[in-house]
Amino acid sequence: MKRLSEEPKVQFRNVRQLLGLATAMEETAAQRYQGLAARMVKLNEREIAGTFSTLVEEQRDHVEEIAGRSRQLTGAQPPTPADPRGLPSEIARSWDEAEASALLTPYRALGIAVDNEMLAFAYYSYVAAQSDDTAVRATAEWLAGKALDHAATLRDERRRAYRRQGAAGARGEMPMLDASSLPEFVRQSRQLESRAAACHRRIASRLAVLGEDAASKTIAEVAERERANGSEAANGTVEAGRAELAQAARPLPLLRAALAEAERLHQTYLNLADRTRDEQVLAAAQRAADRTLQSLAAIAARLQAFG
């Protein structure tokens, strides 16, 4: 279950205000998905662009659904919120991740959409629990239910995308965790962290040779975090294909490779959290995903600095 990292900043005085912010959330999502679709077209990633275009249409359907609810309850269209800071920051962060992503696939795109719906569910559930206004509470519960329904539909689409990508061998060499207990999660996680650390150390060393000291430091810090969570026995293990990065002559391919490695680790934990039924494994996978998100953000920021 996706959780909010901070309490919503807006206290809703009435139903119109709540529906106005809900409309803004859906319209903002449509705009971001549209931008990502356009970016994928430029990169000739037609299938991913098509996935995002479909999400744009679904968001527009959500906007119209909320508008209909507003007309039913208040006799008017929902207003434009005066304070956009009420939007959950976690959703904006997931879009920023997508825009910097080195591993975008239809499965990953749909994963972002699922996560956003679950964050919306958490947001509206919080509003419903905290509101003293009966109408606001009922409307927030309706919005939370809709977000949960949308997430279930998107999960079905994501499963189909996963099967298509798996059949085509197009999962980007994503490692799989199959931990049924916390000790098993710890063992497998340490191996994955160590492999990632070895890869990132190689990249950091090559960046240093190229004179990219700031970028080298960022990747070295990522490698150190991974090493601290890894297994000493597995340290130094890295696939031969990634070892070829030691000969790269430019910083951008190195940073993209570093980002892709961090994403593999991050997404592996998210995938396990999505599948496991063990509460201890779920909590550990979520903590690991939060930790690796720090690495993702640091590498993405360094990559964007290169323009």
Rank of each mutant, 00 (worst) to 15 (best):
K2R: 14
L4C: 10
L4I: 02
S5V: 08
E6G: 12
K9L: 07
V15P: 00
V15T: 15
Q17C: 04
G20T: 03
L21N: 00
A24G: 13
T28K: 11
A30K: 13
L36K: 06
M40I: 05
V41L: 11
L43D: 09
A49T: 11
T51H: 13
V56N: 10
Q59L: 01
H62R: 01
V63W: 01
V63K: 04
R69E: 07
A76G: 14
G86Q: 06
I91C: 10
A92H: 03
R93L: 13
E99I: 12
S101W: 05
Y107A: 14
A109R: 00
L110W: 05
L110T: 00
G111R: 07
A113N: 02
E117A: 14
V127S: 08
Q130M: 12
D132T: 14
D133G: 10
D133R: 14
A135M: 07
A138D: 14
T139E: 09
E141T: 15
E141Y: 02
D149W: 00
H150G: 12
A151M: 04
L154T: 00
D156F: 02
R159V: 11
R159A: 14
R159Q: 12
R160I: 04
R163Q: 15
R163S: 15
A170G: 11
R171H: 14
R171T: 15
M174S: 06
E184V: 03
F185I: 02
S189E: 11
E193A: 15
A196R: 02
H200E: 09
R201G: 01
R201I: 11
R202E: 06
A204Y: 09
L207F: 02
L210R: 01
A214H: 05
S216L: 03
E221I: 15
E224D: 06
A228T: 08
N235W: 08
G236Q: 10
L245G: 15
L252F: 00
R256E: 02
A257R: 01
A258N: 01
R264Y: 10
L265H: 05
L265M: 08
L272A: 07
R275W: 12
A284Y: 03
A284M: 06
Q286I: 04
R287T: 13
A288C: 07
R291Q: 06
T292W: 10
I299N: 05
R302Q: 14
Q304G: 12
Q304T: 06
F306E: 14
G307S: 11
